[in-house]
Nucleic acid binder design. Structure first.
Lengths: 212, 212
DNA sequence: CCGACTTTGTGCGCGCGTTCACAAGCGCGT
DNA sequence: ACGCGCTTGTGAACGCGCGCACAAAGTCGG
């Protein structure tokens, strides 16, 4: 399955859930594609990787598609995640409501600062970073979220990998070095802003040259 | 300039700044590539789009590269951004320190809830969403950040576009419909988690089949 | 039962981006 | 002054992913 397709499946899934809430039971590739911001041909090709679950002349059954996409994404089981770094961003993540209803459970909140141990955030007590190994073992954690400052991110990452965590979502503004069987996804606010800055800059330059 | 290259320039920029703080004055493509998590050939091709600023046999001058990348990204000027939606995530974004030092200034915080008007967050007073047009005009805002719940995101987006904002960073879990001269970048936590879930799922399945 | 209409699934060609490999260029030591 | 070693910049081949366009397949009205 192409990586590009995998990256789009969650988008389709969300659009389908939104459609289901409006009472729609079937949807055409054209409609779903528009709602997902992609072309209809691309959408159909993506879905074809899951199997042939559409009906020609009608479209796709919304519930059925939700089921098959969820299964492909491995959302049948509940994944336990551990969140390291309970600063500004970490607290926002802990309070984010979209975890439970999508099959993810925060097993623990960890922070390197002993002064914060025991503090309740979103109903969970903050524990010491050194408890990481215990948490991963006892709670069956398989995904790690890093929301620490850049300086500590690589250390936290190394600890996670040492504990057997092979999937990491990194919010710290650093590129993490990991073994090749571990995959890391980065979410970096400044990066995104700078990319927007580039395009805005370019648009302004074009408007200068062609003021018509 | 290829879009893929633009997306990597901020990563190089960060790595260069980190190198500069350690006192390094020059860096080879190999070293910078490793620090940025890419291949050296790709890095050189990316940088070649900016011009020929390397010295054969030596590498790149760190300060010079920082300058040229910053200029290409349009970071010479300070961009004003407006943040709409001061919930959990919005507050974390407002408190994020990485804005000022990278050329971005939060011009205002807006929220649709009148009960929150006047409240101070990160030193800025929350204003009403209906003030948007004034803020954009008076403060010269060119970038909008949407951190509202999914339900209100499209409405906020439409208002931003109507005010002339053509660059939007969307944290709400929705695909926004915009005119083609507006570009939107999405940052979606659940999406990233689900992509990780897929890979974790796949790894588990492989381990099952080939337990060796 | 049949024909017209709708929509899926996919084969094919194209364009972008990545990677390899190497010639050109620069500094340094002798 | 000259050659040696290192690093850049880039031409060329490769591969992936996208979009087009159409045949296959199913529905619905008559």
């Amino acid at each position: 399955m192409p990586e590009a397709t995998v990256a789009r499946l969650p988008v389709y899934l969300r659009a389908l859930n939104a459609l289901a809430e409006t009472g729609r039971t079937t949807v055409s590739s054209e409609a779903l594609a528009t709602a997902s911001g992609v072309g209809s041909a691309k959408l159909r090709k993506d879905l074809s990787h899951l199997g042939s679950y559409g009906t020609r002349g009608v479209g796709y059954d919304v519930q059925e598609l939700v089921f098959h996409i969820s299964r492909a994404l491995g959302l049948g089981q509940r994944w336990s995640v551990v969140l390291v770094g309970v600063g500004n961003l970490g607290q926002a993540l802990a309070g984010y409501g979209g975890f439970d209803d999508r099959g993810f459970r925060i097993a623990a909140l960890l922070d390197a600062d002993p002064a914060r141990t025991g503090e309740l955030v979103a109903g969970l007590p903050i524990r010491l970073l050194s408890d990481l190994a215990d948490v991963v073992r006892d709670e069956g954690v398989s995904i790690g979220l890093i929301a620490t400052p850049a300086a500590g991110a690589q250390d936290v990452c190394d600890r996670l990998v040492a504990c057997g965590v092979r999937s990491i979502l990194n919010f710290a503004p650093t590129v993490l070095q990991v073994p090749e069987d571990v995959d890391v996804r980065r979410v970096d606010l400044s990066n995104e802003l700078q990319i927007l800055s580039f395009h805005e800059h370019r648009k302004a330059a074009e408007a200068e040259v062609v003021p018509a």
